[in-house]
Amino acid sequence: MLRVMVNGKGEEASEGETLSSLAKRLSIAADVYIRNGFAVDGTLSLREGDQITLIERGKMPDKAQLEHMMTARHTPFVHERVKKATVGIAGLGGLGSNIAVMLARTGVGKLILADFDLVEPSNLNRQSYFIRHLGRPKTEALKEQIEEINPYVSVEIHTVRVEESDAVTLFGGCDVVCEAFDDPASKAALVSALLEGRPSVKLVAASGMAGFESANTIKTIRRFENLYLCGDGTNEAKEGNGLMAPRVTVCAAHQANMALRLLLGITEV
């Protein structure tokens, strides 16, 4: 006899029983079979300890079932770690808004989001906002999106300009902080203030992602003990070399992935 988890409930299965026969036995008209976070074929046999999610396409599940189904695609040990974590994001422009959405999809337990600015039309070329958000604080617009993507993420927002003196108060309790400002002096000031005030916090900053040269020049490097830097290091936003969705999003993804790695205890880039 095998013990498996099916849609969050413990079930017994017989040796050699397939996923599809299990679904049939439980009267679930499954269209998709997820085993241990991975979509598999229904003809596969169950194994001891399998975490199985059976999904019926087009059917809206209740809230508890929804959380289980959403987490089904998370690699099990990853989800448990990130669910307990807090990540701060300083600046919610092209980098920060995209990082926030990616980390929400990844299931990070708590996000602390800070930005003073309002959503304006020129933001829509690269930032994760919609027409309906125009004129609203970026913090509120992003919190609303995250609630629609993953309502199990706790989102704390601060609609303020982050000053050097507030950095530790706002982000000192985070496991990882992503620096996502636009202005280079603000970037340098946040990094210096946070690493001075909280030497143990892990910081993932960005420098150089404007224009449309090869996306392959955007990298993640480790600069200080607790400072990781993403970007190409040189392409600043200026006239004739604007910020555009592809490279900005690539850089945001580098930051989100490094943040995820750090939450999992991996310090190599």
């Binding site: 422009g93 092209g94 636009d182 280079p184 420098s207 404007a210 200080f224 400072l227």
Partner: peptide, 10 residues
Amino acid sequence: LEVVSFVGGG
């Protein structure tokens, strides 16, 4: 000495 320089954009 380690010096990290930042350029603008985000």
